[in-house]
Design a protein around this nucleic acid. Structure first.
Lengths: 342, 342
DNA sequence: GTTGGCACTCTAGAGGTTGGAGTGCTATCT
DNA sequence: AGATAGCACTCCAACCTCTAGAGTGCCAAC
């Protein structure tokens, strides 16, 4: 990639292809974008771009379409992400501000994102591992069964059942509850787990088994992957783009059902580029066969880079409007961060 | 519908069409099912069936396909639902038995159902309105903010935030918590709501505003539709059948995103036929344009008929294997009931 | 490095044709 | 009266063939 104009040509091809969904030829290109040169010149550039692997032709004597590598170059070229319009921002503020609890906030966020981008949107619940604890509650539900409720400062609530071998003592529970909360309230999960180990020592040996069980349950809950959850919206948008890539919708839906795959992908993505606010994976870059023709745009929220408490993003065909979609993802991530406590 | 053989013919048409996905003609029919009569005779029966609206032809000189009315007749004809095989039952028991909390139980259930039927599966969370309360917890999260956590006997946990105008008094909260639980624990939501009104009276007027707010929040949570939730799985199965009804997948996905629509449909269905264990809606019977070519099979779980605590079901093309699917839905509903406490 | 010209390639779409599956009807048989 | 064989008719789906048009690559000229 040397010439400056070639970049321009690549960008034009991407834009036109995204618009028209059809291979774009040299004549059309000079007509729509005033490049100031003749089709023949463009053809030379195109040949060069094809040699370098940025574009390809479906068949001889058809126009060119961008390759994954071409999209990648295009995306990397995007420097400034354009902000949303005033009314859009106001609408978002109003929508997200009206949410009454975390579930609703995330539900509204994911719908908003799907609506803005016209793609499939995904939002991960705040990871317990990276959240700060607000409160731990011990609720006896039967004489020998206890529900441990963990509440984070960003509003997430997790529950676990603990079975006891002996009848539960209300006084002991109250003391334990106070102790645990004094120890861990306000702390991040990692520090909290360290502190939890000390709690048992303050109690008589007779009570240790129960306390250890409880502490261990909390510890597991704070560390395990099982607690990771995601919400999704906009799958109907897949069917819209179905018209052009009909064979792909099945695999994509399959991938969406594999929540673990999605979660891993999202975290990987943002971890790989900790300094960038937005992470983009295009086609094979997802390393997932079912997503070979899909692009993913993701961002952390509720904290900068590695401190992000969760991820959100959008999946769509590689042939998507990257600038606009990236703008939406970034904006929604910011608004979600703002509206989430802690 | 008079002749006995005509019913047989209708059934044969339904079966063949479900298998082959192609209009079925008279010759093929007599070949595959040994009806003991000639094609010409069948043609007469088919003409009659068409007059009565049970079957139709896509175009003149094509075979017949069942109409919604035809499927309906076929389904109503199914008397005994065949049980699952031994290994299947064992696998289900093992799978559902391994769930550690309600979220996981429902998640596993919906995946199981999707897998068994190869369709889209839907499971509604136990409705708070029809669940028995187990415990209400009041957790102060900031000096003036309170989280009300409601736990039902079937393991559902709902939370709500209550803001107070004055600093919260720990002693008062303890008393209130004890009082509320003494009043409502073990009761169904309806009775609990009645009892809740009495709680405030036992406290000094000064504390009434806060208590009223709390009680009202609980009351709302127990009554509101907003708390209804569903989980879904198997949307990828839509793409499989996509090959034959490609235009329909979009609308269906849209309908699936409208969770309210689904919820209403499920409840309506089971309410309409309170005595039947299974409810079936075929095509237009759903009264929903997007589901015009979709059939829904639903069942309540966790209680007989109107006492069911929630619904579960399956959506698929009207051209589906009703007997098998119905068997799966019924079986899964039973197993879920069994594995859910309360 | 750019451009015009030109021969070449390939696809998508428009007719045109045909085989086969299916129907409805009528006359006949039981 | 119901069942059947025969027959003429219909219509789709599949297969050809053909062509127009868009696009390319390359070469010679600017």
């Amino acid at each position: 990639m040397t010439s400056d104009r070639r970049l321009q040509v690549l960008g034009a091809i991407v834009q036109d292809y995204v618009r028209s969904r059809e291979p774009v030829g040299s004549r059309n290109l000079v007509d729509r974008h005033n490049l100031g040169v003749s089709p023949a010149t463009i053809r030379n550039d195109m040949a060069a771009l094809e040699d370098e692997g940025y574009i390809a032709q479906p068949h001889t004597s058809a126009g060119r379409i961008p390759t994954d590598k071409g999209y990648r170059m295009f995306v990397d070229q995007i420097s400034e992400v354009k902000p949303l319009s005033g009314p859009e921002r106001r609408a978002i503020t109003e929508l997200l501000g009206g949410a009454v609890d975390l579930d609703e906030l995330l539900e509204r966020t994911v719908r908003l994102l799907a609506h803005l981008t016209q793609q499939v949107a995904v939002v991960q619940y705040p990871s317990l591992r990276r959240s700060a604890l607000q409160h731990v509650e011990l609720v006896p539900t039967t004489p020998r069964r206890l529900m441990v409720v963990i509440i984070t400062s960003n509003g997430r609530v997790a529950q676990r059942i603990v079975e006891s071998t002996q009848d539960l003592d209300e006084v002991l529970l109250a003391e334990l509850r106070a102790r645990i909360n004094a120890e861990v309230a306000g702390l991040g999960a990692i520090k909290a787990r360290q502190r939890l180990g000390l709690v048992a020592e303050a109690f008589p040996p007779l009570d240790r088994p129960l306390i250890t069980a409880i502490v261990q349950t909390i510890d597991e809950t704070l560390s395990e992957d099982v607690e990771e959850r995601i919400v999704m919206a906009g799958t109907a948008n897949l069917a819209r783009s179905d018209l052009d890539f009909p064979r792909t919708i099945g695999p994509v839906l399959e991938a969406l059902e594999e929540q673990m795959v999605l979660l891993r992908l999202l975290t990987e993505m943002v971890d790989d580029t900790p300094d960038q606010p937005l992470a983009v994976r295009i086609g094979w870059e997802t390393h997932h066969e079912n997503l070979a023709e899909t692009a993913v745009i993701a961002s952390g929220y509720g904290g900068q880079g590695p401190q992000a408490v969760g991820q959100l993003g959008v999946l769509g065909p590689t042939r998507m409007d990257y600038p606009t979609t990236m703008a939406s993802v970034r904006a929604v991530a910011r608004y979600l961060s703002r509206f989430m406590n802690g």
